[in-house]
Nucleic acid binder design. Structure first.
Length: 825
DNA sequence: GCGGACTGCTTACCT
DNA sequence: ACAGGTAAGCAGTCCGCG
């Protein structure tokens, strides 16, 4: 495509946003070739769709064109109206496309034209709309034709996959904090560290900028004052031509603090390419910050997101905890944040503080290297900027992708429900099936599960809000066990997109396997493919939840109900077949079956799998999760009594331990995987489990328990092993019931301790008081501990449950409990 | 007034 | 501010007993 007077550039599209110039919106692109390169699009017009009430399109058009009003000094009118045909809410319809002068007019017009008809797509962010309509995504390689004058884009198209390599700097600040929390109106920033990522994948390197001598290390740069330090930091960002700036909680802490100090000291925080600082914007619950001409990414919300979807095991989201898990080793330098001010004041400690600070910035880069690849892929996939994707919830990601595909298919995007409509969608939906296990120890188990059960059902049965109970397919649609049926003629958007995701992921997994065979696990190619596969997995697993999410655009209660109904049907069908084959089905949860092999062999399991898979719909597959020499299900609390009647003891659901063939133990649901149990209880339960599953030795197990009881009783237990952690989800006053953690917080608050809503509370049960709540004290304030509580309520119950399965009689266990109470060991 | 049974609130887990 | 299913502890209440 060559047009006279136009230039062409091939580069990676990195970012899109818009500004207003002389009242008109101008799309701004950042492309990257060697450096960032800006292009503009002043021609792109904001618009929305309108479905007129009644059939009179001409009258509607007239009414729209007649709208004219002023708001905040600007005149608002409709620029143009076009008639369009779209696949709208399940059928072909005519609609009006209403073109406006400015994106900010859309919400203003919304109310003024509501009487003409129903509005659609009136809340699509303008830059995203541009990406959708131009059919390009961030991190695509694009070819753009532009007029040299004003760098106006005339045409843009995707020509391949772009590079995600950006010049990346991470930064971190240390603040003076004599009061615990720093106060930006008084307390200076004492150090700023910055680390530059090595494009070749090596260790990051960087500097610490400070204004007092901090040891003789090379990386420390001493300037005269705090003000000079801020200026030096900005100068570095500029000089290094930083394209991506990373921080950890930088949107909420570092950047605002830097800005406040800059204001106080009479200087500017010139981080942007236009020397501006940053702009904060609320998004959902969290705040995000944009820096002009660079990509600022706060890793904290990303890490939280990974935690929520279960990709991270840590329950603490401090940089060091996250670093330890992601990078696989402890951070080199650890200090307590409370000590920063003391270290700064101490000439001998300042060097250590500088090392710590440097280390924080370096760790931030490394955490970024672990979590960003998936975000890049998500951005490419959903056609939304990194800014939009980072820290977005799974429902937002699913929705971004659906909206994008809807646009490509000329399908109208359904509206998000209003608050009151969302309320109407509330109400219970029957979910998965869970089989009650029989408590006991078993030998030779096989665990089977359906690969991606819900996604495969949604695809196989075309489950979508606009295919459900379709009139044409009343008699020959896909009939779900819940009584609804789904169209066989038109494929819904949800299953279409989900299908693409599943197929693409299957391809990627093949490629990954191939690379694994070639020993290329460490290669860059492998990590890119892995990140893609991760992004697809996150999305695929979110569609079912999204169907039932009351605020979703593609909500379908019937679809969700049918998905779980089919799920229950298939997993129970597999149970019947397995039993018929001669396996005993011990336990099932949602998509999995635990078989007891009994006299049968592994080959019988494999044969069973291939047999049943022949009969399942194409997208559905039952897989072998693994073989386990031993497994344990424990009694449900309170079901001990039924033992007297010689009934089979009912096991607890969602609690089991399996011994793998490799000797590893897989544990689900036990106290020892919960953070609201003390470490001593969890460690002991683990030790007992090991002794029993691995060694089959109850003597060993009992010895461990005795030892720990003695430790507690004699007062030798370490405080840190006694802490119970619980999240304080509401503010203290809002609780109907004063549980131990709430009582502990209340007591601490009375003495001036500040506890934030949503923070993790660590408390210890002490000797003072009658009820557990009265005895609870925050760990920092606890002086002693109540040995009896820890023995009877923490240590013994979890282990007795396990020992109970070893034929260790109930009476023996009771004795052990009593003896513990009496201290008679 | 007491203790046991039960309910409801709450958290964190499983898939 | 993605879904439902589940265990479990503690507070608080109810109830029978005396």
């Amino acid at each position: 495509m060559k047009t006279p007077g136009l230039k062409t550039i091939r580069a990676t599209l990195v970012d899109v946003d818009y500004v207003t110039k002389q009242g008109r919106p101008v799309i701004r692109l950042i492309l990257k070739k060697k450096r960032f390169f800006r292009l503009f699009d002043a021609e792109f017009e904001p618009y929305f769709y309108l479905m007129p009430q009644g059939k009179d399109f001409k009258a509607a058009e007239k009414a729209l064109m007649a709208v004219s009003f002023s708001e905040k000094g600007q005149k608002v009118t409709v620029k143009r109206v076009e008639e369009v045909k779209m696949d709208a809410l399940g059928k072909e319809r005519e609609l009006l496309k209403v073109v406006c002068h400015h994106p900010s007019h859309v919400p203003l017009l919304r109310d003024k034209v509501a009487h003409v008809g129903t509005l659609y797509e009136h809340d699509i962010p303008f830059a995203r709309r541009w990406l959708m309509d131009k059919r390009v995504s961030p991190f695509d390689k694009v070819e753009a034709e532009y007029a040299q004058e004003g760098r106006q884009v005339r045409a843009v198209k995707k020509v391949g996959e772009g590079s995600t390599a950006l010049r990346t700097m991470a930064f971190d600040i240390e603040t003076y904090n004599p009061k615990g929390e720093p106060d930006s109106s008084k307390d200076p920033i004492v150090m700023i560290s910055e680390a530059i990522a090595d494009p070749a994948g090596g260790k990051p390197h960087g500097h610490v900028i400070t204004f007092k001598h901090s040891g003789g290390m090379k990386f420390v740069k001493v300037v005269e004052s705090e003000k000079k330090m801020l200026e030096e930091f900005c100068r570095q960002v500029k000089e290094q031509d930083v394209e991506m700036l990373l921080g950890y909680n930088s949107a909420l802490f570092d950047l605002p603090y830097l800005k406040a100090r800059a204001g106080k000291l009479g200087t500017k925080l010139a981080l942007g390419r236009d020397n501006s600082d940053f702009r904060s914007r609320r998004r959902g619950l969290n705040e995000v910050a944009k820096i002009t001409g660079r990509i600022h990414v706060d890793l904290y919300p990303i890490v939280r997101f990974l935690g929520i979807i279960g990709a991270l095991k840590t329950t603490q989201y401090t940089l060091s905890a996250v670093y330890a898990e992601l990078v696989g080793r402890q951070k080199e330098k650890m200090i307590k944040k409370i000590d920063v001010w003391r270290m700064w004041d101490d000439n001998k400690m300042r060097e250590e503080l500088a090392e710590y600070s440097m280390n924080d910035a370096i760790s931030t880069v490394e955490v970024g290297e672990k979590v960003l690849p998936m975000e890049f892929e998500m951005s490419r996939l959903c056609g939304a900027t990194l800014f939009d994707v980072c820290g977005a919830s799974t429902s937002q990601l699913v929705e971004m992708l659906l909206m994008r595909r809807a646009g490509e298919k000329n399908m109208l995007i359904p509206n998000r429900p209003r608050d009151d409509d969302a309320k109407l969608r509330e109400g219970p939906v029957k979910g998965a099936y869970v089989k009650v296990p029989q408590a006991g120890i078993y030998e030779n188990l096989a665990v089977l599960d359906f690969r991606g059960l819900y996604p495969s059902i949604i695809c196989s049965y075309n489950i979508d809000p606009f295919t459900v109970d379709c009139e044409d397919c009343k008699n020959d649609g896909y009939k779900s066990p819940s009584g609804h049926w789904f169209c066989k003629k038109r494929k819904g958007l949800v299953p279409t997109v989900l299908n693409e995701i599943i197929d693409r992921r299957a391809e990627l997994k093949k490629e990954l396997k191939k690379l694994e065979k070639e020993g290329k696990v460490e290669s860059a190619e492998y990590s890119v493919l892995f990140a893609k596969s991760q992004a697809l997995k996150v999305l695929a697993n979110s569609y079912y939840g999204y169907l039932l999410y009351v605020r979703s655009r593609w909500y379908s209660r019937e679809g969700g109900e049918s998905t779980t109904a089919w799920g229950r049907y298939y997993v129970q069908e597999m149970e019947k077949r397995a039993e018929k084959e001669g396996f005993k089905v011990l336990y099932m949860d949602t998509d999995s079956l635990f078989l007891q092999l009994g006299g049968k062999k592994k080959e019988d399991v494999m044969r069973f799998l291939s047999e049943v898979n022949k009969t399942l719909p194409e997208k559905m597959e039952l897989e072998l999760e693994g073989f386990y020499p031993r497994g344990l299900f424990v009694m449900k609390r309170g079901s001990e009594r039924s033992l007297e009647k010689d009934e089979t003891p009912a096991g607890a659901k969602k609690k089991y331990a399996l011994l793998g063939e490799d000797g590893r133990i897989k544990i689900r649901g036990f106290e020892l995987v919960r953070r609201d149990w003390s470490r001593i209880a969890k460690d002991t339960q683990m030790a007992v489990l090991q002794a029993i599953l691995k060694d089959g030795s109850k003597e060993k197990a009992i010895a461990i328990v005795k030892e720990r009881v003695e430790e507690l009783r004699s007062g030798k237990a370490k405080m840190e092993d006694l802490v119970i952690y619980t999240r304080l989800r509401k503010s203290v006053g809002k609780y109907d019931i004063i549980s131990p953690e709430v009582a502990a917080v209340k007591r601490a608050q009375k003495e001036g301790v500040k506890v934030e809503e949503g923070s993790l509370i660590g408390y210890v049960i002490t000797k003072g008081g009658k009820s557990v709540s009265e005895k609870a004290q925050l760990v920092e304030r606890a002086k002693d501990y109540d040995a009896n509580y820890y023995i009877d309520h923490q240590l013994l119950p979890p282990v007795l449950k396990i020992l109970g399965e070893l034929g260790y009689g109930e009476d023996d266990l009771k004795m052990m409990g009593k003896q513990a109470k009496l201290g008679g060991w």
